[in-house]
Design a protein around this nucleic acid. Sequence first.
DNA 1: TTATATTTGTCAATTATTGACAAGTCATAA
DNA 2: TTATGACTTGTCAATAATTGACAAATATAA
Lengths: 96, 96
Amino acid sequence: MEFGEQIRELRESKGLLQRQLAANLEIDTPLFSKIERGERKARKEHVEKLSTLLETDKDQLLSLWLADQVIDLLKDEPQAKEALKIVQREIKKYGH
Amino acid sequence: MEFGEQIRELRESKGLLQRQLAANLEIDTPLFSKIERGERKARKEHVEKLSTLLETDKDQLLSLWLADQVIDLLKDEPQAKEALKIVQREIKKYGH
DNA sequence: TTATATTTGTCAATTATTGACAAGTCATAA
DNA sequence: TTATGACTTGTCAATAATTGACAAATATAA
């Protein structure tokens, strides 16, 4: 999972411990560990707070986090690629 | 929503009533109505059964249904497009 | 050994989803 | 007008999924 890898890399590059970030997010360390390994999903507020704590771009972190959720939805689905084509087509109608 | 529109079109082109399809899916008519209008999600088994009942391609119907779920996840997200780029990149690693 | 960091497994509590029901609208027929 | 049929809307309980906490396990050093 992209998001977990990213926050782990940023955390380690800053010499921070899981428990330090976990405390800031007001969750316990085991849960933070699971989020890093992609076993659990972070909540949006956590992602936003992490972007501050890790001094990284919020939009890019949210993109990774969102992407993970989509991948989670599409994994094991033979129609994943076809579905993505439809999404691309549709998304242009309202997004910008 | 793409999926709902599609099943409605197929249903009407075959002159079928909501209650007839609902009975086959073993759900009530109000729920079927909501699925057609995208207010509720169909379950995978329902999609598969509908492809038979409506004599349409199962893979294409599942693609539409999947696409709707992704769109639902991405709607209202400013990072939708960026996230999709990441998904496209990632999906190539395992799917094919 | 001991101490510290992270991971694993399990559980209760919360939250989301599902489907049913009753009542509503709308159109058309009698 | 009233009645009927197709569909829609709103609400609710039951079920299922997700969340976070805790205890215990593993790993890594000192």
